[in-house]
Design a protein around this nucleic acid. Structure first.
Lengths: 141, 141
DNA sequence: CCAAATAGTTAGACAGACTAAGTTAGTATG
DNA sequence: CATACTAACTTAGTCTGTCTAACTATTTGG
């Protein structure tokens, strides 16, 4: 692919990303937690994280994350803790219930996507398979 | 790709879609209109549409679209009109200003995506190019 | 020890989404 | 044709998600 094609690719990608967003929305529609809450719980799966880390990872301001974590805490899905080495820092961890909820939503979400993917041809699935690392890189840059 | 792999693909896709959403958000960050407003304006480019059509296309309830169109109308970017064949129906059209705004935001968005795509390798861009039709189909099903 | 920087929270505003309920207009049926 | 039903929208109220500004508490550097 030449550099000249990059603009055209950007235009097509721009056009399709909107539909992927709607797909994402349908993926978690009717779930007991919102897409954002699911996303935050996912960030905590590997262990406790500090508020600042969570805000950066989700590309939101710190007060926004405070509100989100407040709601998850009220729902009993996460717990705040203190950092022994720095009293300013609050860490956030999954509770048992939070972990269970995360897994349940993930199963439902993956099930939905599996059915959608099942309606594609094997070639189309293979194309997505090949493109995923590039899309991942794009999303993280 | 076999059927057995579909579940694993769904899992990876599920994981990466979140990052694409964040990419999308950055794409229109700092623009004079929100992502949703841009999206609605895009739906009107081909001509007037009725409220119900817009709500369905954007996968929102009718009252949500009413509010969005109210704001776009207040901003002078769209105009409501009556349908001569059915007095219940309101149609919505781009104003000249709305069309100009749409084009400006689209240029900025495509420019951003172009720069992001430019940081990928030619092979990665080619992979996205090949996968786009499949992703489009996925998003529309 | 004090000033500046860092980590979070609180408060106030607004966009975006939903449901429920109301209005107006078309449709169908006795 | 009158009545009831359906359809297209809007309004009102609520909640989530996001922001900025201002505040508290803590650490760090001179």
């Amino acid at each position: 692919m030449t550099t000249d094609d990059t603009g055209a690719l950007a235009e097509r990608l721009s056009r399709e990303l909107r539909h992927l967003v709607l797909l994402l929305r349908r993926t978690t529609a009717g779930q007991p937690i919102t897409t954002q809450q699911y996303s935050v719980l996912g960030s905590l799966e590997g262990g406790g994280r500090r508020m600042t880390e969570l805000a950066e990872e989700h590309a939101v301001q710190l007060p926004t994350m405070t509100v989100q974590i407040n709601r998850l805490e009220d729902a009993g899905l996460v717990a705040r803790a203190a950092d022994p080495s720095d009293a300013r820092v609050r860490t956030v961890e999954l509770t048992g219930e939070g972990r269970a909820r995360l897994h349940a939503v993930r199963e439902a979400r993956i099930g939905y996507l599996s059915r959608q993917l099942g309606s594609l041809t094997p070639e189309e699935r293979a194309a997505i398979d090949v493109a995923l690392p590039a899309l991942a890189k794009l999303g993280r840059s």
